[in-house]
Design a protein around this nucleic acid. Structure first.
Lengths: 233, 233
DNA sequence: GTCTATATCTCGATAGAC
DNA sequence: GTCTATCGAGATATAGAC
């Protein structure tokens, strides 16, 4: 795995999302997979409307006609990519929460930051595509999320409840669980989105991306852990 | 000023950026200004390539040919809009830092969060256009920022030094000033970008946007202030 | 399944009447 | 300055040979 920021390293931002033996994804031929991941990268950069089928074809090193052979239309291709990305984004959060376990809240927090920044930091296109949808109004997202939330078992809700319990137990200071969660996730994700600006402030992040991720974990955890320590008084 | 989230309130996201007696902007006719602000909104939603001249024309309630009459081409229009937005974004940060003053660091931090969230929260398109550039690689941003940074007086640098001095004075705990700044700005901006997702967790934010901004300020400040309190030990 | 050629449509841009 | 009409480039999508 490269140590440099993925933009110095084309085709390394989606991290082999589609394949893999985790079984949750529909089976795809090798060609379909190449197209799918190329599409993810281009849609992530340019957004739904800004993306060009030709650019996706080039990125997949394939003929433009094949895109339509496999996915019929740009809209269908985007729909499949976005649907996949949404669930991957959701799952990344879920897994980070799960692995956080049920130990002390401090340990859970550390584990969450570690896993979440690791995953998103190595699958930037998933995040970028989500953000592109945010910017465009997020109607699609709101729809998917509302369906997810309706179950009452959505990962963000579960994590918020974990925080709430820690507050009730006096394990941490009395913070608003939802706002603390928002601050936490912001501290994980925004620096990855704003990398072109952040890297002007932290230039070594470009050549040592892994080190940057670790520094983000450490600094974010330090300030947040202290920020919610219960007071003796 | 509306209390609802600006997306429920079209044409209210750029907040009359261009006009006003602050003098720094080039003078524009009323028509140019309408076009300019419409362009800002559409570019913010769809990005440079995704935006359509027709959509900008519709949003400005004007004929499509007028766009070319006033701004000659899409590229020139975008260049002007982006240049303007970059400096507005920069200035918002600068002003938030300035108003933070030179009192105690805690007071400066509070003032910064207050002014920064206020400005960006009411000029979402400025933020969205910046983020669109981030997603697209940020080459333009990196160029502008590098020029700004070269002066050594860029607002982020100045704020980082303010933090560094507070650390040296023992006023706050020994944090890495650059990472603390990144965490701080992330906590201010990301919730505004990710509003479609955040508002599923905090539904009242839709109908009481101003209240949401105030709650963000309070919760972010609470956790960060505690997070950097110096230790007695 | 893969490629070339091409149909069809959309978009940026301009010409020219008013 | 403003509008209608339209050109031409470039985009999505398809037809059809292989």
């Amino acid at each position: 795995m490269s140590e440099r920021h993925p933009e110095a390293d084309p085709a390394a931002t989606s991290g082999g999302l589609v394949s893999g033996p985790d079984g949750a994804e529909a089976e795809r031929t090798e060609t379909e997979e190449r197209i799918f991941e190329a599409a993810l990268r281009v849609f992530a950069r340019k957004g739904r409307d800004g993306a060009r089928m030709q650019e996706i074809a080039d990125e997949a090193a394939i003929n433009k006609a094949m895109l339509h052979y496999y996915f019929r239309s740009k809209d269908r291709l985007y729909a499949q990519v976005f649907h996949y990305v949404f669930h991957r984004f959701d799952r990344a959060f879920f897994e980070a929460v799960e692995r956080a376990g049920e130990d002390s809240f401090a340990a859970a927090l550390e584990s969450f930051v570690d896993h979440y920044i690791d995953f998103i930091g190595h699958h930037l296109d998933v995040l970028k595509l989500m953000v592109n949808e945010f910017l465009d109004g997020g109607a699609v997202i709101r729809h998917e999320v509302t369906a997810m939330i309706a179950t009452g078992q959505a990962p963000p809700q579960r994590f918020a409840r974990l925080i709430a319990r820690a507050v009730e137990a006096g394990e941490i200071a009395p913070v608003d669980p939802r706002h603390f969660l928002v601050t936490l996730v912001s501290g994980c994700l925004f620096p990855l989105i704003a990398f072109p600006m952040v890297s002007t402030l932290i230039p070594e992040a470009v050549d040592d991306y892994e080190g940057f991720l670790e520094a983000r974990k450490k600094n974010l955890l330090d300030v947040l852990r202290r920020g919610i320590e219960p007071r003796s008084g």
